[in-house]
């Protein structure tokens, strides 16, 4: 697979993805959050075979499905059904979130009351290696991406605790 990325000033970013089969997918991520998708079949010329517009939310949902983050219990057997009640979610730390410049330990402790079935699995910081199982004293900063894991309800409650 080959991925090319170009900046489109005033519009956003364009990714051109050529898959192993020779098909091409052009994805434009607008600064407004809209996504434009065009699919070019291998060997066909200039015109896209299919085009699709997605909202930011739809694109994230589809992205999660493609990367296999969302499990669907009805599609799998008993063993994974238990797994299916668990989920992993990525949470971007925004300015004004409650967890900003506090340690993981403090946040976990507070959240323990409301969200006992979830925890912070890792911290993703731009330009740094992934911090798996972050030690309690590591400090959360604006722009970090927290990877949360646990039961679906627990993760939702934890997200709420961290951001409000």
């Amino acid at each position: 697979m080959k991925v090319e990325e170009v900046v489109l000033p005033g519009v956003g970013r364009k990714y051109t993805i050529t898959t192993r089969s020779g098909d091409r997918l052009v994805i434009v991520v607008h600064s407004s959050g809209k996504r434009e998708l065009q699919y070019f079949e291998a060997g066909e010329g200039d015109e896209p075979t299919a085009a699709l517009d997605l909202t930011d939310e739809e694109a994230r949902e589809i992205g999660a499905i493609l990367s296999g983050v969302l499990f669907h219990p009805e599609a799998t057997g008993d063993v994974t059904a238990r797994l299916a009640e668990h989920t992993i979610e990525w949470m971007k730390v925004e300015p004004g979130d409650r967890c900003v410049s506090r340690t993981v330990g403090e946040c976990q402790e507070e959240a323990q009351l409301h969200a006992p079935q979830a925890h912070i699995l890792a911290i993703l910081r731009a330009g740094q290696a992934l911090v798996p199982n972050p030690p309690p004293e590591s400090r959360i900063e604006v722009g970090d991406t927290l990877i949360l894991a646990g039961s679906r309800q627990g993760v939702n409650a934890l997200k709420h605790e961290l951001s409000h």
Partner: peptide
């Protein structure tokens, strides 16, 4: 830039 976005030519 606005025309390109509105007329869906960004790709």
């Amino acid at each position: 830039a606005k025309l390109i976005i509105d007329l869906r030519r960004a790709a």
